Amino acid sequence: MTSALFEAPGPRARRRHFWYAVLVASVTGGAVCWMLLRFADAGQFDARMWEAFGYRGVQLRILTGVVDTFKAFVLAVVLSLLLGLLFAAGRLSAHRFLRWPAGALVEFFRAVPVIITVFALYATDVLRTCVTAVADLLRKGLGAPGEWLAENFASPTLWALVIGIALYNGAAQAEILRAGVGAVPKGQFEAGYALGMRKTQVMTVVALPQAVRTMLPSVISQMVVTLKDTSLGFFIMYEELLYAGKLLAQNTATPSGYPYLPVLCVVGSLYIITCLLLSYVARRIAAGHMLTMTGMVRNRRARSRDSFPGEVEGK
């Protein structure tokens, strides 16, 4: 089948592309071999490099990094979804005084690099003052539970990372939500208005349930981006997984040197596993949503047959 976008390459072009591929593969393979040889000369493949991971202190350090990563991830996901709903509602509003500021905020936070936002929040005294005040209120108002919450969540570094990530990903989620609502056929909106619904009711009862199926894969993909963005805490010394790996690599001495490559392998594998698990959960949720939608359609058809048996049989 001939593509309409470009002309199919002829024999000479195919040979040329083949040799281009051979050249790129040779250069890439040579670079990888050179890196492996350099690592081998530095002793990074020595078995003694992996002995440190058998110590309980190292294992606890990695576990703490994983817990702190998930802590920042969960908070950032919840906050980004809330901001995404708020920004999307503003962008879909019929009022200009809501639509224009929401659009400006979305474009601004999408354009500014996340690391700049995180650094700006980290250097802001207002954030530190607010977090400290909330921690004092938790300790005084809730007693022991408040002490636990203040100790584990009242950290300016944590909230600088969470808010910075949530602002960017919230803007991205807003565009995903807006696109999903825009994909709903206009006839669905007109049917809701014909029934006497207001715009808010049409959006929440008619549009959003249909748009969820379209938006869900993109929303989950953006959550994976949020998970990977938590590694930016490395730059503000938040003790997430990447920062914990850096501390281990720099402070764990072996007879063959510092275990940079083993730590990189362990930390990278944990990131890959968590992203794969999140993608798996996303596929399960999407499959469950499809089954729910199919069941709803079947129930509606069954109710229609029970209510109008003659008409259904005639059709």
Score class of each variant (00 low, 15 high):
226 T>P: 07
216 L>C: 10
235 F>I: 15
261 L>V: 13
280 Y>F: 14
281 V>M: 13
190 E>Q: 15
277 L>H: 01
241 L>E: 07
264 L>Y: 14
248 L>N: 07
209 P>K: 08
213 R>H: 14
147 E>S: 07
227 L>N: 05
202 V>G: 06
245 G>L: 04
162 V>I: 11
259 P>I: 03
180 G>E: 00
147 E>V: 11
220 I>K: 01
174 A>Y: 01
257 G>Y: 09
225 V>T: 12
166 A>W: 02
265 C>A: 14
208 L>A: 13
228 K>S: 11
181 V>P: 01
148 W>G: 04
199 K>H: 10
215 M>N: 06
208 L>M: 12
163 I>Q: 03
267 V>R: 05
153 F>V: 15
170 G>L: 00
179 A>Y: 00
151 E>T: 15
223 M>V: 07
151 E>Q: 09
145 P>I: 15
229 D>E: 14
173 Q>A: 10
171 A>M: 01
214 T>M: 04
165 I>Y: 04
276 L>G: 05
204 T>I: 09
200 T>G: 10
221 S>N: 15
203 M>R: 07
221 S>D: 09
251 N>V: 00
231 S>C: 04
145 P>A: 08
211 A>Y: 02
178 R>A: 05
154 A>M: 12
242 L>G: 05
205 V>Y: 15
281 V>D: 02
164 G>V: 12
158 L>W: 03
189 F>R: 13
246 K>S: 06
229 D>P: 04
157 T>Q: 10
276 L>M: 06
277 L>M: 15
258 Y>A: 06
269 S>F: 13
243 Y>G: 01
187 G>Q: 10
152 N>E: 09
281 V>T: 11
242 L>F: 11
235 F>G: 05
281 V>F: 12
255 P>A: 04
155 S>D: 15
211 A>L: 01
248 L>R: 08
229 D>R: 08
173 Q>I: 05
274 T>Q: 06
223 M>F: 13
278 L>A: 11
206 V>F: 15
202 V>P: 04
253 A>V: 05
192 G>D: 09
235 F>N: 15
243 Y>W: 14
256 S>L: 05
158 L>R: 10
219 V>A: 07
186 K>S: 11
233 G>N: 06
211 A>S: 10
198 R>Y: 01
173 Q>H: 06
159 W>I: 13
268 G>N: 04
156 P>R: 02
197 M>C: 06
234 F>Y: 15
252 T>L: 08
191 A>L: 07
149 L>Y: 05
271 Y>T: 07
153 F>T: 14
214 T>P: 01
232 L>E: 02
215 M>W: 00
279 S>N: 12
150 A>L: 13
